[in-house]
């Protein structure tokens, strides 16, 4: 019951969808399953949120290092959740003034919108922006001509970077754009690298990935890989 039924569900679910793909009447089954998955993932938020609360409440009750921050997590979580779920301050839609709950939960000017606009967006966007700093330190550390592979890696990155500045473009501007060496102009070099090597490399990676996915899927469906199903 604990292990064989889930194994059966896995195999039947997977193979049924594969077969369904070839039968016109059932080919849309995959879309239905995708919608079901979204529903399950949304229900699973309860598990995640519960775990978040439990984990931080534990830190607070243990008075472990930084327990005050756990209080901040719980506070911001509960406030945001309450405002979001109860549509605090959301006016009903203009067409349906009698339906108090009809408004857009993130309508402009609502408290939830304020949280989104002035906390969520700046925090996540700045996190994203930190990549600019990390990309510089990674380039400084990793792009050293240790061997031929590293030379190719850094050489290509170097050419592409140079081609993105007007200084780099000016560097090869003396090459006749219609002459036999026009291909060495940095903008043409960039296009060539991107359209030939980059395409080829990605193509091979994609083919490999597809084969890997076939193998992993089959192993899952045949029950060769089943660690996620837990102990008997």
């Amino acid at each position: 019951m604990k292990r064989s039924v889930p194994l059966l569900i896995t195999a039947v679910g997977g193979f049924a969808l594969i077969v369904a793909y070839f039968i016109p009447y059932t080919e849309a089954l995959g879309e239905t399953v995708a919608v079901w998955f979204d529903i399950l993932a949304a229900i699973a938020f309860i598990l995640g949120g519960g775990n978040l609360l439990k984990q931080h409440l534990k830190k607070i009750s243990d008075r472990g290092p930084g327990w005050g921050y756990s209080g901040v997590v719980i506070g911001s979580f509960l406030i945001t959740l309450f405002i979001g779920l109860s549509k605090v301050g959301v006016p009903p839609l203009a067409e349906f003034p009698d339906f108090a709950w009809s408004g857009d939960f993130i309508g402009i000017g609502t408290p939830f919108w304020f949280i989104y606009q002035y906390a969520f967006v700046p925090l996540t966007a700045t996190m994203f922006a930190m990549l600019a700093f990390y990309i510089a330190s990674a380039a400084f550390r990793a792009f050293r001509a240790k061997n031929l592979e590293a030379i190719l890696l850094l050489g290509t990155a170097f050419i592409i970077l140079l081609g993105r500045t007007f200084a780099g473009v000016a560097l090869t501007n003396w090459i006749d754009p219609t002459g036999p060496f026009a291909g060495l102009r940095i903008e043409n070099l960039t296009v060539y690298i991107m359209s030939v090597f980059n395409t080829v490399g990605n193509r091979a990676i994609m083919i490999g990935i597809a084969l890997g996915i076939v193998a992993v899927s089959l192993k899952v469906l045949l029950g060769v890989d089943r660690s996620y199903l837990g102990k008997e």
């Binding site: 510089a136 380039a139 550390r141 001509a145 240790k146 850094l154 970077l161």
Partner: peptide, 21 residues
Amino acid sequence: PQLVAHLLIIGLIIAANVIFF
């Protein structure tokens, strides 16, 4: 900012390789 930052990264790569060699 793009131009200056790109030149900086290019400079960093050059510096890194000078050290290396």
